[in-house]
């Protein structure tokens, strides 16, 4: 299997942890990460994640600050399994640089009915959110 510059395998394994960094405290509550945190970018139709679990936390936050925050404060991170994302019929594809970066791809898109598209995306985002672990900073 091919190896990426980060040293990780090219293929994201089913049991790999993926980190979605949260730049607003409104993206989660005491119970869970909210579905909106996983919705795709309107520009590239993908959701950016990093291949890292909840530990070690110092490296987790270092990755977030350097590559995900864009100068914003990080309030937390959602950790989810690649298997849960694939169970929602979405793809998880490694995409470096930056190191350990991956994307969630395959979100439903409809040029003819953007609202219906959005509703479908929300359903899938809710499924991912229901299985995600919240790590607060």
């Amino acid at each position: 299997m091919a190896t990426l510059p980060s040293g990780l395998d090219e293929i994201v394994a089913e049991d790999e942890d993926l980190a979605r960094y949260l730049t607003s405290s409104s993206q989660f509550n005491a119970l869970m990460v909210k579905p909106a945190a996983f919705l795709p970018s309107p520009k590239d139709h993908e959701t950016s994640v990093f291949r890292h679990g909840s530990e070690p936390q110092d490296r987790l936050w270092a990755i977030g600050v350097e590559h995900a925050a864009g100068g914003r404060n990080l309030h937390g991170v959602a950790i989810c399994k690649a298997s849960h994302i694939r169970a929602a019929q979405l793809e998880v594809i490694a995409e470096e640089p930056p190191p350990r970066h991956a994307v969630i791809r395959g979100w439903p898109f409809s040029e003819t009915d953007p609202k219906l598209q959005k509703a479908k995306q929300k359903e899938l985002a809710a499924i991912i959110a229901s299985n995600a672990e919240l790590v607060r900073r």
């Binding site: 607003s24 579905p35 909106a36 309107p42 959005k118 929300k122």
Partner: peptide
């Protein structure tokens, strides 16, 4: 509850539990 969405929309969330929500 309210949350921002990347397309500029606002999400209104009613969360009963992790597996019971309306967004």
């Amino acid at each position: 509850e309210f949350a921002p969405e990347p397309d500029g929309s606002i999400s209104l969330d009613w969360i009963q539990s992790r597996h019971r929500l309306f967004s």
